[in-house]
Design a binder for these strands. Structure first.
Lengths: 233, 233
DNA sequence: GAGTGGTCTAGACCACGTT
DNA sequence: ACGTGGTCTAGACCACTCT
């Protein structure tokens, strides 16, 4: 552990990272407390705290009052994915983004969607099917339910220049939701619009969005075969 | 904006969150600068900074020096998944975790794996096939390549009480890697061990792990049909 | 009870990017 | 040039939790 004359929290963090990565501090081991490290690094305790807090958030350290700070035993626990904002994703590859709305009607959702949207039976809401394309090739097929009772404005929305997704992001505030990734087997319908064979394996993202306790929308995106979500650790 | 007598950064953060969620501050809009908010909340600027930094990391705010702080236009961009540590995942559901190693041999990897592991051709390394089970039902099928040149100890490892994954986590330090999620179509082999039909859609996680510039291991997990990754936003 | 991390403060200076 | 966020400090008190 060399004595650097740096005092930025980043420098401290890098040094601590090195100690962990090189197993100078081994998994499960207690590391020196903040005051001690502050003295070693020649900086304020707050600076050390800033550095260690970041590493704890990243999952590399376990910190508990009185118990001290330990190197996490099983350090890989989280992966952060950027959620595809389809237009950006496509345009980011230099391809031409477009979308086509196949279906737009009021409909009574099936029981599972009713449950997800916390609706009672028999109420019909807005249902949309949209295909996103990149350079005119099918990219993802979106089926979306919008709780039009909670968002009445959506009924008069024009989705010509703004996709349903972007319209919602722009017009309707939200404060939570959930997100599921799964593999699905292409139905005849999905195969048809995505131009793949029926039975193909597709990556599916299901998402619900809520605001102030109400569920606003429930959407499934089925991506073209070969689509991948990627991230660095 | 009510004047609270709280001064914790969490309280400030909650209040700012409320202003965003209720569109008191609209997407794209400039919000008051730190000094002003500090005065409004009756706290130090550092406290406001702490609160806003958190929201910026969460993707709700865009902050730039001199330009000030704005409400993000497209706030949903990241989702954090906890990476499945299979044993914990299974035991967490109250099920019995077990695994069985089907194959363990030295083998020359195919070209794509060679590339991923940054190996030159003709070198044989350790190859493992493992099935993880929950209550004796197939859970996930793992195919793993381990760069046994970088980790010679692995050749004498006994994987009876510790799965290859857990052995590596325990014995080999690492400092990076990457992570891919995709949908795959079950091959005959995968269908056989997972007890599903050939051609079924499976969620696949591919991961490489590196340390000090070297790629240590490349692993693919193919989960049983119906498996989902879930997270809240 | 006592040791450790968690947070707040008031002030200061710096880094950056808009102007 | 100047306004804004980014960071550092030294000290203080608090909150948790282990013993």
């Amino acid at each position: 552990m060399t004595e650097e004359d740096r005092k930025t929290w980043q420098a401290v963090q890098d040094e601590v990272r090195r100690c962990i990565s090189q197993r100078i501090w081994k998994p499960g081991e207690l590391i020196p407390h903040e005051a001690e490290l502050a003295q070693q690094f020649g900086c304020a305790r707050a600076t050390v705290n800033r550095a260690l807090r970041g590493l704890a958030e990243a999952g590399l350290l376990d910190r508990r009052r009185k118990a001290g700070t330990r190197v996490t035993l099983n350090p890989v626990r989280r992966a952060e994915f950027s959620i595809p904002v389809i237009r950006e994703e496509i345009e980011g590859k230099g391809q031409r983004y477009d979308y086509k709305i196949f279906l737009r009607e009021m409909r009574v959702p099936p029981p599972d969607v009713q449950a997800r949207l916390q609706l009672s039976g028999g109420i019909s809401i807005l249902y949309l099917q949209t295909l996103y394309t990149a350079d005119n090739l099918p990219y993802a097929f979106e089926t979306r339910w919008i709780n039009s009772n909670a968002v009445p404005d959506v009924l008069s929305a024009d989705f010509r220049s703004l996709s349903p997704n972007e319209w919602l992001v722009r017009e309707v505030p939200f404060d939570g939701g959930d997100f599921t990734v799964s593999a699905l087997t292409a139905t005849e319908k999905e195969a048809g619009v995505l131009g793949c064979s029926q039975g193909a394996s597709l990556l599916a993202l299901d998402r619900t969005t809520q605001h102030d306790g109400q569920i606003i929308t429930s959407v499934r995106l089925a991506f073209h075969p070969g689509y991948r979500m990627h991230t660095r650790l």
